[in-house]
């Protein structure tokens, strides 16, 4: 017997499904992604593995020796049809104190020049935003944030830096984000937070999780 896939569920190898809930970056679609992840985890389905949100999709891993694919697809459909309510998800707010400019934000002058704003105005607009954590990836603890003021959009560096310090706050195109670890990177770095986004030896090890809301507050270095 062959498993049947609706067109909005696609196999991704033989241990993972991609559930497609929409297209484009939209906070409302993204909230449905998080609600589906939560709903599936709460059902404690045997053999259910990682549920990894994307902007508009959910990656659902499973153990094929334990989970029947048809049952899993039915569970996904059932969560989507049932009482799951995107508004039930708590939007936890996390405030990140950031020292903007100077050695901590070497690209602040470039961003100001590119956007035609003063450095103070870049900081004011960046701290005025409310940023949902739409998904996480790239590095452990790295948040893909939505909601940046589009007047701050600045292209990436043409040549990425070899080392971007942990905690660096950057802009890449219309996105803003925070480096959880020292890493190579091409984002325009405008500041740095002293908070630790990922430390495996701490409890909890991750400062943020998908579905949170982040705000930035300017502090003196």
């Amino acid at each position: 017997m062959s498993s049947m896939f609706p067109d909005w569920i696609q196999p991704c190898g033989d241990t993972s499904l991609l559930v497609i809930l929409g297209e484009g970056i939209s906070v409302s679609i993204n909230r449905r992604v998080h609600a589906l992840a939560k709903g599936l985890r709460e059902r404690q389905i045997a053999g259910l593995g990682e549920c990894v949100p994307g902007y508009a999709t959910l990656r659902v891993d499973y153990d094929p020796l334990v989970t029947s694919l048809d049952d899993l697809i039915r569970s996904i459909q059932s969560v989507l049809e049932s009482s799951y309510d995107e508004n039930l998800l708590p939007a936890r707010e996390v405030v990140l104190p950031v020292h903007y400019g100077g050695e901590d934000g070497p690209d602040l002058p470039f961003v100001a020049q590119h956007t035609g704003l003063s450095e103070d105005e870049v900081i004011r607009r960046h701290t005025a935003g409310v940023y949902p954590v739409l998904m996480m990836g790239f590095l452990p603890g790295f948040p893909y944030l939505g909601g940046m003021d589009e007047s701050l959009a600045t292209p990436r560096l043409e040549t990425p830096r070899q080392r971007v310090p942990a905690g660096s706050v950057g802009i890449a195109g219309k996105q803003t984000g925070v480096y959880p670890l020292e890493s190579p990177g091409g984002w325009r770095i405008i500041g740095r937070t002293h908070l630790t986004l990922f430390d495996a030896s701490k409890e909890p090890p991750f400062l943020l999780q998908p579905g949170d809301v982040v705000r930035f507050v300017a502090v003196e270095g």
Binding site: C12, G13, S16, G54, Y55, A56, T57
Partner: peptide, 10 residues
């Protein structure tokens, strides 16, 4: 594509 979850073997 928009960034999305990617499993081992992809």
């Amino acid at each position: 594509i928009l960034s999305e979850g990617m499993p081992r073997g992809a």
